[in-house]
Amino acid sequence: MNEQPQTERELFIPGHYGCPGCGATLALKQTLEVLGEDTIVVMPAGCWSTLIGIYPYTCLDVPVMSVAFATAASTAAGVKAGLSIQGNEHTTVLAWAGDGGTFDIGFQALSGAVERNDDIFYICYDNEAYMNTGIQRSSATPAGGWTTTTPDSALKIQKKKNIVEVMAAHRIPYAATASIGAPEDLRCKVQKAKGIQGTRFIHLFASCPTGWRHVPELSVEISRLAIQSRVFPLYEVIDGERWQLNPMPDKIDVDRYIKPQGRFKSMTPEGIQRFQKQVDWDWRVLQSRCQSIEKEN
């Protein structure tokens, strides 16, 4: 495949403070390649707001606004309103938040913006914990995942929150999962979402070698394995009603996804079996959701 950058000037400048192999940086780089220079990024506290650079320097060549942790969606909505009243309806306002800033502290503002159908593009880059503060559990952390606040002596028992379902419940025009392990799919979805009016949401899976305890060179591969094992399947929801699966490689066992990651190292074989059962069940539910809509049509 031949990827040609879509923009003339480089929007992503090297020299940032991201960990080697950081999935989140790859995620924004690939997103901006599609969105281009007519984009304003609103980013709350999280890995990105720290790695972007030390003031007064930055690694992005689009306007970026660092905002308070809980305010990604609300500030983005305000930026959009401010642009709109000045006659600018073309600039994409991208709210770029981590899982902490989306699933937890930013949840209310996100729900508010989506309910109002504010014309913003919200992407949650999900590394499944509060990584910037040193790997603490969020509601996006998978069950059994080690973090400093769910250590081996007290691993997380709650399942990962399904944020796309929540978005769908708001009747959002477009919600989808995407992953750095499927870059063509990501590009497609970002391009599609860019052209839609109203709130668009992408849940973007981004590996974290530091927090997940895997070798940095496997960052993309781990995300790929998540798709293949259906731990993180690729799908879209249109208007909160039409669920459709995206093409994925053949399903593999979760084993291959779990084994390279140190955060799962204390998972027993029984634990892996339970994990597998849960993934299988969720996958069946998702499939039936996608099929039942087809049946109605």
Partner: peptide, 24 residues
């Protein structure tokens, strides 16, 4: 003007900040 019925005062001020930052 654009009228935003926000879902809390925290969001009210945040959206004002966003709008002001955009030049409104």
């Amino acid at each position: 003007a654009r009228y935003m019925t926000v879902e809390s005062e925290h969001s009210a001020m945040a959206s004002c900040i966003g709008a002001s930052a955009a030049g409104a």
